[in-house]
């Protein structure tokens, strides 16, 4: 099926919407419904934000390359950057937040910048992989199965 489509944008918050729109168009073509497309956009938004905040440390320091392809039942999104290695696997999940005043204060105060975004990505994607090497930079692979989607359509 489809060949790889790729987009390169400057590492800037305002460009993230472009990444989302690019992925949304590909996901729509692949047959995902609006709900699933929103979730894929959200994952790309969170991943891009993490690249700017953690890998590059600030805006306008490097570019973000996003690509997608369909391989069998997999919709594969790849995000690349040339910033510092940032392994999502090393970021702990956000803490559980208690509802009583004092605990909520403490816990919400501890929420990590990237913690929530990664938590969402892990919840929403079927597979998440990260690799980093000095030549190719950082590579985040996020995979969503089309299978469940087409099954839903058929019912």
């Amino acid at each position: 099926m489809g060949s790889e489509q790729s987009l390169t944008v400057p590492g800037r918050y305002k460009e993230i919407k472009r990444i989302c729109e690019f992925i949304a168009a590909g996901a729509a073509q692949a047959g995902f419904d609006d709900e699933a497309i929103f979730r894929l956009e959200l994952c790309c938004d969170e991943a891009s934000t993490n690249i700017i905040e953690h890998a590059y440390g600030e805006e306008d320091t490097g570019s973000i390359v996003v690509s997608y392809e369909i391989s069998g039942d997999d919709f594969i999104i790849v995000m690349r950057d040339q910033g510092r290695a940032f392994d999502p696997a090393l970021v702990p999940p956000p803490p559980t937040i208690n509802l009583d005043g004092t605990s909520a204060d403490g816990s919400t105060g501890q929420l990590r910048i990237g913690g929530l975004g990664l938590h969402l990505i892990r919840n929403l994607m079927d597979e998440v992989r990260f690799s980093s090497d000095s030549r190719e930079g950082n590579k985040l692979v996020m995979i969503k199965k089309l299978e469940a989607q087409t099954g839903k359509e058929a019912s």
């Binding site: 934000t49 919400t108 929530l116």
Partner: peptide, 12 residues
């Protein structure tokens, strides 16, 4: 549309 950036503002 809301991302975790928006959630953080609400939590703050």
């Amino acid at each position: 549309y809301i991302s975790s950036a928006g959630l953080r503002a609400m939590i703050s």
